[in-house]
Write a protein that binds this DNA or RNA. Sequence first.
DNA 1: TGTTGATTGACAGTATACTGACGATCTAGG
DNA 2: CCTAGATCGTCAGTATACTGTCAATCAACA
Lengths: 170, 170
Amino acid sequence: MPSKPPPPITMEAVYAAPGYLFRRMQQIAVSIFMEECKRFDLTPVQYAALIAIHTHPGIDATRLSAVIAFDRSTLGSVIERLEAKDYIERKPAPEDKRIKLLYLTKSGAAILREIIPAVERAQARMLEPLKPADRKTLMGLLVQLVDLNNEASRVPLRAEDALEHLGKGG
Amino acid sequence: MPSKPPPPITMEAVYAAPGYLFRRMQQIAVSIFMEECKRFDLTPVQYAALIAIHTHPGIDATRLSAVIAFDRSTLGSVIERLEAKDYIERKPAPEDKRIKLLYLTKSGAAILREIIPAVERAQARMLEPLKPADRKTLMGLLVQLVDLNNEASRVPLRAEDALEHLGKGG
DNA sequence: TGTTGATTGACAGTATACTGACGATCTAGG
DNA sequence: CCTAGATCGTCAGTATACTGTCAATCAACA
């Protein structure tokens, strides 16, 4: 029986590959986000971090990285920049000298309120070319895929675990 | 009539946002690619560049950036690294002193042949958690979305345009 | 022909993203 | 109490990704 021939080396194969499409779509998404939000001087990553700190005041950097599925090393510089812009502040934890707790400043809370409409517009624009039914289908499949592939990424999302020690009386 | 209330600020909203899901999926895709291909010392981007140079020998950096939808600045360092690994070589164009033409070396052609099965495995693994029918649906929608949003990215894909001057006799 | 405008590759600067390592610190076990 | 292991923030190193700029070069036009 004949063995399967090797796949042809063509750009068409690249253009149809999941990895290529995910990278391309991410580039497009960032581009649209930055365009809608350019008057705010906030990147998508910085936005996600602000939301997480707003939702969980007093979170530390390691737990924050688990909540938004971010590399801890990368997060260090993100936090630094947010602090430099006076959107967040770091306070040492009294009971653990290793930890620094993160809080939104008034400035940070204000920018968050202001930027949200722009973010909503950006998110809508990313899917706009699709028919409404297709948007739902795509998002549904993506949520599934990201969830089922969670452990495949270096920094899996640990939304609940990360918060056990945060005022929930775990 | 009552105006729509502002959306709540929650992590759930972030987790369901297209931009967040695209970023997350890209992280996962890169992670899987690197895992399957770690013995080859090639990144996803370097792989795409090699394929494009293989398909279009003698392409220059600017056209290459259009063919794989890459920033020209970024591409400079990618080319540098591929050249340092002796997978490609740069030759000055005789009729235009600004341009350097890109060619695969024997080493580059060899690594390409060897890595392809690993890349195929990686691409398959990214979609593996979904049912076969859902994989097709997702890829179909993504291809559409990336194509229809092409102009929204800073470096739109220009597959055909870029090759008008390359042995096709315009 | 000579100048204008566009293109090419290169560079500096910023911002993710990941690997691996490190000292400081905390926790558990003996 | 004291040490072994774990955790925390940080840092160095590499690799995308984008913005903006620059000199060299080329093409087109007056």
